[in-house]
């Protein structure tokens, strides 16, 4: 969702021009790819915030399972996805987003259709809302620490320890802390707001990070890269699935799941009200919900499937729950006041 180089954009723009000459897009398309079926029976338009390289194996596996469906896959940011469906009335058959709050607002405000999934009975209660929102991944927000700064076994295991370590060694960590710029990242904002709700330690942590002149990032990938290279000592609230994927071919960092609590985010799929090819969208949605049965796809995409057993064995994992509560931090005044607090804490210099 965050890597996009210029050549890719130009290519996508060209594809977009050829595919959609009739409708001008008001939202920003990061990339777009047409997965042409051998003998096209129908066409499924997917809008997603998941990068092409992440979703590519899933789309190909879906096409293997259901032949004749051409998949038109558009990648955009969470806010743009919301805007495309909410304000512009763009026509897509399936919308996949990591912004649970924005997806909740879409469903709450009547922009989603009902779906009765085939594996509904095995879905945990928190993984669905109103038969419209369906979580198909389970991705913790974790702490990434550099091996250069923390030898194995010395990394802080909870937020109080983290605060203590940072306070006690201001010189060592000055400018070496990274976290999301919640003003730019929907995921960062969601994790920060959940943190603020879960623990008073959050604001203390933000204060400490602000004093240490924390670096702000747009994306998990950049933070992981800088931690691995030793440019950062640690990065807070990194998307666990990306870090785990990076760790396969990069060394130099550890993944810490905090023991006090770990926010767990889910990617959410919904069928927009404007969907034209609802039948195929339901098939794709059912395919995504059954991701757990495809270990090969989990490995290839790096998207951990919903795993209720993991939540039972590790009580500190806290899945973000759908519901009107997620609308609270989307409230303009609330968002303004949260960002003001956040800026006051983090941007002290």
């Amino acid at each position: 969702m965050c890597f996009a180089d210029i050549s890719a954009r130009v290519m996508v723009a060209l594809v977009a021009l050829t595919l959609m000459t009739s409708s001008a897009l008001g939202f920003e398309v990061e990339s777009r790819k047409l997965y042409q079926a051998k003998s096209e029976r129908s066409r499924l338009k997917v809008i997603s915030t998941a990068d092409l390289n992440v979703f590519d194996p899933i789309i190909r596996a879906f096409q293997d399972a259901h032949s004749g469906i051409t998949v038109d896959y558009t990648v955009t940011g969470t806010t743009d996805l919301m805007g495309a469906l909410y304000d512009e009335g763009a026509v897509f058959d399936l919308a996949i987003s990591s912004a649970m709050d924005l997806q909740t607002k879409l469903a709450n405000d009547g922009f989603a259709q009902d779906h009765a999934p085939q594996i509904a009975t095995t879905l945990p209660a928190w993984a669905t809302w109103r038969d419209q929102l369906f979580a198909f991944t389970q991705e913790p927000a974790i702490l990434v620490v550099s091996d250069e700064f923390f030898a194995e076994g010395t990394a802080p295991q909870n937020r109080d320890e983290l605060i203590a370590v940072l306070r006690d060694n201001p010189d060592r960590f000055q400018g070496k802390i990274g976290t999301y710029d919640v003003r730019r990242s929907g995921f960062g904002y969601l994790m920060a707001t959940q943190d603020s709700r879960n623990s008073d330690a959050f604001w203390r942590l933000m204060e400490v990070m602000g004093r240490l002149d924390a670096k702000l990032y747009c994306c998990s990938g950049d933070m992981i890269r800088d931690v691995a290279s030793g440019k950062l000592a640690l990065a807070y609230n990194v998307l666990g699935s990306y870090a785990a994927a990076q760790l396969k071919h990069t060394n130099g960092f550890q993944i810490i799941e905090m023991s006090d609590y770990v926010n767990v985010m889910s990617r959410t799929a919904l069928i927009p009200r404007t969907a034209e090819n609802v039948d195929d969208a339901r098939m794709m949605l059912d395919f995504l919900l059954d991701l757990k049965a495809r270990k090969d796809l989990v490995a290839a995409s790096g998207l951990p499937a919903v795993d209720a057993a993991a939540l039972r064995t590790n009580p500190s994992l806290r899945p973000v729950r759908y519901g009107p509560a997620l609308l609270v931090f989307l409230d303009n005044l609330k968002r303004q006041s949260f960002l003001r607090n956040w800026e006051n804490s983090l941007l002290q210099n």
Partner: peptide, 10 residues
């Protein structure tokens, strides 16, 4: 101004 309480909607 208003600081929308989390509990009000939750």
């Amino acid at each position: 101004t208003l600081d929308l309480p989390y509990s009000s909607l939750s």
